[in-house]
């Protein structure tokens, strides 16, 4: 479903601030793969995700989604394949627009915008049903502005919006990091449920090793712009956080305890 071949990205090349964020990353994801990505600050997790989403172009390498080479496509043209949920809850919705307006825009992801009605009666009924499934009571507040929602509600809504029209690839960028532990757990449960029900291919960054071990069928650890560890389902099945840390120390030669990654 997703094929990444040897992509590299250097920020501010040739300056004192030069940062080699991705040093030749390759990754193949099969359909229905749910990959969790962990790694310390500056490991390149977000850079990898943003490279796939097309927020910037990579310096070399190829990105292929479902057989389509998207390496040269701008961000908005990749949107037809990709659903995204961001770390900052404010990023995922247009806060001055209503919940239903936000959903109607998500329904048209990847389609060209015309002078047809922005939202129809039929769509509203459909949205009501979707929101009902979230069980947050949002189905009664559909004409409220998205800015009035709490962080958790917004992430749940964004998740719904990202998956409403089935994406080829779902990108989750620490989407529970800004939430309180209880809400984070709920949103994560919801994520898991949607991915399983819709049989999505998903890439999830998390800073929580337990979550990374618990969810998904594959786990990757990034370090200094490379994928350091790549564990398949059977390999990660009985793994504990301490095992993971040992593997990291062995593979990188660095001490995990010094790393900000240790936000277990």
């Amino acid at each position: 479903m997703l094929k990444i071949e040897n992509i590299t990205k250097t920020f501010s090349p040739g300056t004192a601030n030069e940062k080699r964020a991705l040093k030749g990353v390759s990754l193949h994801m099969k359909p229905k793969d749910f990959v969790t990505v962990i790694g310390g600050n500056g490991a390149g997790k977000s850079t990898l995700l943003n490279a796939i989403a097309g927020i910037f172009s990579v310096d070399s390498g190829k990105i292929i989604i479902d057989g389509n080479d998207v390496t040269k496509l701008p961000e908005h043209q990749r949107a037809q394949y990709i659903g995204r949920v961001f770390q900052d809850p404010r990023m995922g919705t247009a806060t001055d627009m209503t919940i239903e307006e936000n959903m109607s825009m998500a329904l048209r992801r990847g389609k060209s915008r015309t002078l047809r009605k922005g939202i129809t009666k039929k769509e509203k009924d459909m949205f009501r049903e979707y929101l009902h499934m979230l069980d947050l009571g949002l189905e009664n507040r559909m004409s409220a502005k998205a800015g009035l929602l709490s962080g958790g509600q917004r992430q749940a809504l964004t998740l719904l919006m990202a998956t409403m029209t089935k994406p080829k690839l779902l990108l989750l960028d620490e989407h529970t990091a800004a939430l309180d532990p209880k809400t984070a757990k709920k949103v994560l449960e919801l994520t898991k449920k949607i991915i399983e029900e819709e049989q999505l291919t998903a890439l999830m960054i998390t800073h929580n090793m337990k979550d990374a071990l618990k969810h998904g069928n594959r786990l990757m650890m990034m370090h200094e712009g490379n994928i350091l560890i790549d564990l398949q389902e059977e390999q990660k099945a009985n793994l504990q956080v301490t095992d993971l840390l040992k593997m990291f120390e062995k593979a990188s030669g660095a001490s995990a305890t010094n790393d900000r990654m240790l936000l277990v």
């Binding site: 989403a53 961000e75 908005h76 949107a79 995204r84 806060t95 627009m97 825009m105 990847g110 389609k111």
Partner: peptide
């Protein structure tokens, strides 16, 4: 409207 309100979001939804 979304472009003025949240360009990141609406780009992610496929709008130029």
């Amino acid at each position: 409207r979304a472009t003025g309100n949240n360009p990141h979001m609406i780009r992610a939804l496929g709008v130029n």
